[in-house]
């Protein structure tokens, strides 16, 4: 059988379609056994791999406009997999997978120094300040494919890596090495009622995400589609999560590149 080609899994989120309903956040919590507490109001202490930000154009009525911006881990590629967070972890507890482009987190290896949190400009990485406690009976509803995390370690979005593994297992059993587009989809993508999230392989021209973004792979995956942008493009983190919008102010609110030049 042929060796599978390297993938570059990525996402494009249509900010003009997103209604801010938060279904992606909920789906993510359920899929990935994300812990919560009785009082989870302080968002700087709680864990949410997918976080929906609320942006406003700051204008008074009738010109006031809002936009919701879902932010999973951007799975930054940096230069040759030198992501901001991966390169700094002293214990090799987080890894850039050259085969999938996914930035993984090894919970049992992380010892909680939190250097990666300081490194990530998107505030994606979150710390388990408490041990997870599930309401009575809820532990039976946990996803058996995703390990729960203990207090004192960092966690973040993994592009539902367990789904990738499950899909790959099934494909291998059927004698295939390649996954089709719909075989591996993240929970947030499937949960979004507006269909705002598109997920797939940026290397594969047959995938919708590639067609929308038209990534310039020689230049860190910079989008060729003028309506698509990435957060903090100028830092050189080369994220694999893209945002699509027709509205100028949203682009400006999402990336200081346009703002400052």
């Amino acid at each position: 059988m042929d060796q599978p080609k390297n993938k570059r899994y990525g996402m494009v989120i249509d900010l003009d379609k997103c209604t801010g309903c938060g279904a992606c956040m909920v789906a993510c919590m359920a899929e990935n056994n994300i812990p919560f507490r009785d009082d989870d109001t302080d968002k700087l202490l709680s864990v949410s791999w997918m976080h929906v930000y609320r942006l406003s154009n700051g204008k008074p009525f009738p010109h006031a406009e809002e936009c919701f911006l879902p932010r999973p881990c951007q799975h930054c590629e940096g230069e040759h997999g030198h992501s901001p967070c991966v390169s700094v972890c002293p214990a090799t507890a987080t890894d850039y997978d050259m085969h999938t482009g996914i930035v993984s987190q090894i919970y049992t290896r992380c010892f909680g120094c939190r250097y990666c949190m300081a490194a990530c400009p998107y505030h994606v990485r979150q710390f388990n300040w408490w041990d997870p406690v599930w309401p009575e009976g809820m532990e039976r509803a946990l996803n058996p494919d995703v390990s729960v995390r203990m207090r004192g370690v960092v966690e973040k979005c993994s592009f539902c890596y367990s789904r990738y593994q499950t899909a790959l297992n099934r494909a291998y059993l059927e004698g295939r090495r390649e996954l089709s587009e719909e075989e591996y989809q993240t929970a947030c993508t499937q949960a979004c009622p507006a269909g705002a999230i598109v997920f797939g392989d940026l290397n594969n021209p047959a995938h919708r995400v590639h067609q929308i973004v038209k990534p310039d792979l020689a230049h860190g995956g910079r989008p060729r589609n003028p309506k698509v942008f990435r957060l903090l493009e100028r830092l050189g983190t080369h994220p694999k999560v893209y945002y699509l919008t027709r509205r100028d102010w949203v682009r400006r609110a999402g990336d200081n590149e346009i703002q400052k030049t």
Partner: peptide
């Protein structure tokens, strides 16, 4: 300071020399 003090030795054992 570390979240999992009992694993502090990982920094030596699983050292990432680029950090």
């Amino acid at each position: 300071d570390v979240g999992q003090p009992l694993r502090a030795w990982f920094i030596f054992w699983h050292a990432n020399v680029h950090s």
